[in-house]
Amino acid sequence: MDNTVSADLRDLDTSGPSGPRPRRTFSRRNIFLYGTLLVIALYYLLPLYVMVVTSLKGMPEIRLGNIFAPPVDVTFAPWVKAWSQACTGLNCDGLSRGFWNSVRITVPSVVLSIAIASVNGYALANWRFKGAETFFTILIFGAFIPYQVMLYPIVILLREMGLYGSLWGLVIVHCIFGMPILTLLFRNYFTSLPEELFKAGRVDGAGFWGIYLRIMVPMSLPIFVVALIIQVTGIWNDFLFGVVYTRPDTYPMTVQLNNIVNSVQGVKEYNVNMAATLLTGLVPLAIYFASGRFFVRGIAAGAVKG
C-alpha cells in the first residue's frame, strides 16, 4: 500500500525557498548589536587601559598630560615601588606588608565562614530542628542592619575579648557579617537538592556529618565556588572593618592602598598609585578568571533539580 501523502506533488512549484533560511553576517541587526556591545566594552575597558599605561610610564611622561597615549619608555619601577618601597605612614615597605596581612585575614575568614555557613544551611534545609524558622528569620534580619550601627559595639566586644587590633579579631568580624547571606545561599541550594537523597542517606545509616560530608558536599561544588567568590572579593576589598579593627602594622592591603593614594605630602606619584591599585585588585580578578565558569553554573544551579 502507498503510504505517501496523497497530495499530488508533481504539480507543486518547488523552485521557491527550501531548507534553512539564509543568514547574512553583515545584516543591519548584527551591525547594530555587535556595534553596541563593542562600544560598551570599550567604555568599561578604557579606565583599566588608562591605569595600565599610566603605571608603566615615568613621572616626566605623565606630566605631559596625554593619559591615553601608550608609554614611550616602558618602566616597571612604579610597580616595584608600589610593592616594596611606597610609604604608608611610618612604614616604607610598600604594599607587600598589606598584601600578606590581607592574605592572613582573607584565608581564615573565607574558610571559616564558608565551613560554618554551609553546615548552617544544611541543618536548616534538611534537619528542620525546633525553632529553625525563627533562627533563620533572625539571621536574615541581621543582613539588613547597616554595618555602621554595629561598628562601635563590636570595638567594645573585641576589646573585652582582648582581640581588638589583632588579625583574628577581624577574621571573627568577617565571619559574623558573612553569615546571613552565606547561610541563605547554602540553605536555598540544599533545599533545591532532592529530599529523597537525604532520606536515602539516613536509611543507609549515615548521620548528620556523614550525610553532609559524603553526600551533600560532593554534590555542591558550584555553590561552594559561588560562596568562595563572594567571600574572597568581599573580604579582600573590605576597607571599613579593616581600618576600624586593625592597627597600622596589621592594616590590610586596601587600607594601605588608601594611605598611599591619599597621602597629602610630597608629589602625587600617579604611576605608583595606579600600580598599587592594580596590585590590590589582582586577587579578586584572578579568582573571577579561575572560577567564573563555576560561578555562572552555581548561580543557575538553584533552578535545576538533581
Binding site: P194, E196, L197, K199, A200, G201, R202, V203, D204, G205, I215, P218, M219, G306
Partner: peptide, 20 residues
C-alpha cells in the same frame, strides 16, 4: 529507632542515587 536500626531498606521514586 533511627532508620538504619530498623532493619529496613528503601527504594525511592526519584531513585535518589548519590550522583558523585
Amino acid at each position: 529507632e533511627e532508620p538504619k536500626d530498623r532493619g529496613i531498606g528503601m527504594v525511592f521514586q526519584s531513585y535518589a542515587l548519590y550522583p558523585q
